[in-house]
Nucleic acid binder design. Structure first.
Length: 240
DNA sequence: CACCAGGCAAGTA
DNA sequence: TACTTGCATGGT
């Protein structure tokens, strides 16, 4: 896998010619990719920014998080040393516009403590650890659950993990035979096996799913008038 | 006005 | 184990 092929990713899993019926996971991916194009995720300049953003965006619109991140950047606080030393109270006031500011300030401080106590404040050192081990450690940090941990691993550390969020559940609940009641790990395993360990696809797929959530699907549990239905139903349409 | 947003932890039965 | 609740701002 070269850098250039990472840029514009199509699945090619399996080749259309030799497979009469492609896996629905791949089918959905290709439809989303064809429609929306590459997403270039995560929207951040540094791995550290990914990590902070991942906490700030918990159950919160990215729009609100952007405001917070740009303000932190403006004050030159968006790096480990600054956020490690800043008082929690002050941090909570700075991240106010992201919502849950008291909770998230505590969570960010917990992550800083983790980075400094475990890796001397070096994000690079943290991310150079084996991702399976790092995942377990991240999950032990207060405020980092499976989605946040996996977002950090995938988008900051380029680890081969699929990020499962509410949009992902909703999409596969409506447009595949996957049991929506399945827990995080089971759905994740199913998707990861379907995509054969392709980190670039995990990256792009999750980004595409969030894009569809933003553009179309806001209603739960069902949305019959959702324009996304036209894109995802009629699975035979593109391949006679 | 209600409802949702790229979750998580803690409490309850 | 499986629900329920608190956390909170900002946009539609």
């Amino acid at each position: 896998m070269t850098a250039s092929t990472m840029e514009k990713t199509r699945t090619n899993l399996p080749p259309r010619k030799t497979s009469s019926k492609r896996h629905e996971i791949v089918e959905i991916y290709d439809r989303l990719y064809t429609h929306f194009g590459p997403q270039h995720w995560w929207p951040a300049e540094t791995p550290f920014e990914v990590m902070v953003g991942a906490i700030l965006t918990q159950n919160t619109s990215w729009k609100n998080v952007e405001k917070t991140l740009s303000q932190l950047k403006e004050k030159d606080l968006l790096h480990p040393d600054a956020l490690y030393h800043i008082p929690e109270k002050k941090l909570s006031s700075l991240i106010r516009s992201s919502g849950y500011f008291n909770v998230k300030a505590r969570r960010i401080k917990a992550l800083m403590a983790f980075i400094f106590e475990g890796y001397g404040g070096s994000v690079d050192d943290m991310l150079s650890e084996k991702w399976e081990a790092l995942r377990e450690k991240l999950l032990s940090v207060r405020g980092i659950g499976p989605e946040t941990a996996d977002a950090i691993l995938l988008y900051a550390g380029k680890a081969p993990v699929f990020v499962i969020d509410t949009y992902t559940r909703r999409l596969f609940e409506r447009h595949s035979h996957i049991d929506p009641a399945d827990n995080y790990q089971k759905l994740q395993k199913y998707l990861m096996e379907g995509l054969r360990g392709r980190t670039d696809l995990y990256n792009e797929y999750h980004a595409l799913i969030v894009m569809t959530g933003k553009q179309f699907c806001k209603k739960t549990p069902d949305c019959t008038d959702c324009p996304l239905n036209d894109l995802l139903e009629n699975k035979a349409v593109s391949n006679p």
